[in-house]
């Protein structure tokens, strides 16, 4: 009786979790692969098998290319700002010179992270507004009025305007992660370096960076994966436009699936997204797995 109870209860305890994960995370994943081989829409009850034709279409689709390039731009810029800049910011904030003001600044930098993306995007709609927008009014105020353009309406600037908003929102987040990592560095290292007369910049390169190497790598991967998945920002700000100039893979997937009712093709795009992100995720597992002693 006791033995049976001991076997049953742990299983019962974990069962709901496994059900949730199985039903809402793993089955959809498999289902998505399956769907990629069919042509169907929301309101058609039957799915028509089309083999690899969706993937063939994917290869020849110019919009997919545009979207992929935009995702890559997103990733590169995010790595520069959210990773490189955030690391410098975190180092400065952790420097004892700024310890009075740092706690307050940390919270301030973190505020945008807490705010819903729809609020942020609506706010940036006002900032980028070509008529009364803060950005253009500011440029005029400082005498750079000739630089003012309709940021979201210009095919060359739209994707960058979207990316810029992401940086504004997320720098505080990655900075916080670096702060956590820097706080784990043994302080003796810096003290020793101080005694040796090494400057702040030397210390940054020879102590901070090597010591946070793991966090650096993980943050970079998080940022890149996030950039490959980005949906909310372009969807709300530009819906991929003008034309397809600020399209990303996720937005394109959504539009194919839900706006144009090509659920099968949308699934194929989702599969592409999965493959791209899975590669990064695998690297991430490998790296973080070796770093933790648990």
């Amino acid at each position: 009786m006791i033995a049976r109870r001991n076997r049953m209860i742990p299983a019962l305890f974990i069962l709901p979790s496994l059900l949730f994960l199985g039903i809402f995370i793993y089955i959809p994943l498999v289902q998505n692969f399956y769907n990629s081989f069919f042509d169907f829409s929301v309101f058609s009850p039957t799915k028509e098998y089309v083999g690899f034709s969706a993937f063939q279409q994917l290869l020849g689709d110019k919009v997919v290319m545009t979207a992929l390039i935009n995702n890559v731009k997103y990733a590169i810029i995010s790595v520069i700002f959210q990773v490189a800049f955030a690391l410098i910011l975190a180092t400065i904030l952790e420097d004892k010179l700024f310890r009075r003001i740092a706690p307050m600044l940390r919270v301030i930098y973190f505020i945008p992270v807490m705010i819903s993306i729809s609020v942020i995007a609506l706010l940036f709609n006002f900032i980028y507004n070509p008529q009364m927008g803060l950005l253009n009014s500011f440029l005029e105020l400082v005498g750079l009025g000739n630089l003012a353009v309709p940021w979201l309406g210009n095919a060359t600037t739209s994707i960058y305007a979207v990316i810029a908003m992401s940086q504004w929102q997320s720098i505080g987040f990655i900075t916080m992660l670096f702060i956590v990592a820097i706080q784990k560095i043994p302080k003796e290292l810096y003290e020793a370096a101080n005694i040796d007369g090494a400057g702040k910049i030397r210390q940054f390169f020879s102590i901070t960076i090597p010591q946070v190497k793991e966090a650096l790598f993980v943050n970079m991967l998080i940022t890149i994966t996030g950039s490959m998945l980005v949906f909310n920002e372009p969807y709300i700000l530009t819906n991929g436009g003008p034309g397809t100039s600020s399209m990303t893979l996720s937005v394109y997937m959504y539009q194919q699936g839900f706006f144009k009712d090509n659920m099968g093709y949308g699934s194929a795009v989702a599969t592409l997204i999965f493959v791209v992100t899975a590669i990064f995720a695998l690297i991430q597992i490998k790296v973080s797995g070796t770093g933790k002693d648990e």
Partner: peptide
């Protein structure tokens, strides 16, 4: 059809921004 309409509508945007 919405797929065709979308080509024209997005195309119209691209036309206005000189992309196509």
């Amino acid at each position: 059809n919405i797929n065709v309409a979308d080509v024209f509508m997005r195309g119209g945007q691209s036309l206005a921004t000189g992309q196509t």
